[in-house]
Write a protein that binds this DNA or RNA. Structure first.
Lengths: 174, 174
DNA sequence: GTCCTATATGTGCATGGTCTAATATAACCA
DNA sequence: TGGTTATATTAGACCATGCACATATAGGAC
């Protein structure tokens, strides 16, 4: 659902081909959204069909033509409407917590192993995001930039929360 | 994917009909997993087809027969295997952060409104989970119980982290 | 010379999930 | 008496995602 708008958002910044989009997404929003390449192409086609984006074909030889997509005024309206619309209720799906809930059957060592594995992951995420925020410099001036940094900080906060919870939980098991 | 195992986990505790399962899930793991009723029935059918669960039909009149599902030894093995298997890499999909990332276009008031709405939600989650943990008493003794409480505490930690992040971010916007 | 990577777009298939609705009865409330 | 809620299962349509694969060429690594 939001892939549509994530793509519109990227197209607003700059026209993209499907190929570029994949790269831009990986380089900018990968920490909270991921998209399969075929899904990107499908969604682009859908946006064009709905009049939210338009295509300029740039012929090439030796490889497929580039299909450069840009957002239309209708698309811009749709994006802004979505950004201002109320948050839909979300249905949680956390497979890790399903494991935690039932892993008691296997005893304390198995439960601890599960938590340790999770800690390694959370550590890695924290490290990666912290590096990204650091790279970014500091002095944020414009609003867009501040918000983009905020998405990274969100990931950092949650990774830290997860680590704190893991420590507390491992402790409770012993 | 994990619905299969969430259901197996519940079946291990006690045999269930599809109808019961929906209620048990809502009453116990709803804070980290939700399941559509038709999806539950489909998954149950799949478990039976795979030999992981078996059905006892209890005839009733005036309403459909109850189809009571219980886990089989094979099912138990499958559940335990899953619980001990490595965590698969997860692809993030956070629609809220997509909004944060792009909402700059609409200016500070719109961005702030988005964050305020989120705060109301996080507050509600925190309140609800805190009440649940409180209800639960205190003195947890057995492992399963400790882990179940831990899933609640996980939600609490993340809700708190979200609130802290929101405060920091609203601040950064002003 | 051969293999891998980058460029660029797509199709097909399977999985997992949501929403809607059909069916049928009993119990409870207004 | 009439409407909602609870009991219980199941089918159909649709949507989003992911994985594998098809196609075709240029350029660099080894």
């Amino acid at each position: 659902m939001s892939l549509k708008f994530a793509i519109l958002g990227v197209l607003e910044l700059k026209p993209h081909t499907g190929y570029d989009l994949k790269k831009t997404i990986e380089a900018s929003v990968a920490h909270f959204w991921s998209a399969d390449q075929s899904q990107i192409y499908r969604t682009l086609a859908l946006l064009v069909a709905d009049g939210l984006a338009e295509v300029e074909v740039i012929t090439q030889d030796g490889r497929p033509d580039r299909r450069l997509h840009r957002i239309t005024p209708t698309g811009l309206t749709a994006l802004h409407g979505w950004l201002a619309s109320p948050l839909p209720p979300e249905t949680p799906h956390d497979a890790f917590l399903v494991r935690v809930f039932f892993v008691g059957e296997l005893g304390i060592p198995a439960a601890t192993a599960l938590l340790q594995a999770r800690r390694a992951e959370a550590d890695a995420v924290l490290f990666r995001l912290t590096a990204l925020v650091g790279q970014d410099g500091g002095e944020a001036v414009d609003l867009a930039h501040t918000l983009r940094r905020a998405t990274l900080r969100n990931g950092i906060r949650h990774a830290a929360a997860e680590l704190a919870w893991l420590a507390e939980t491992v402790e409770a098991l012993s």
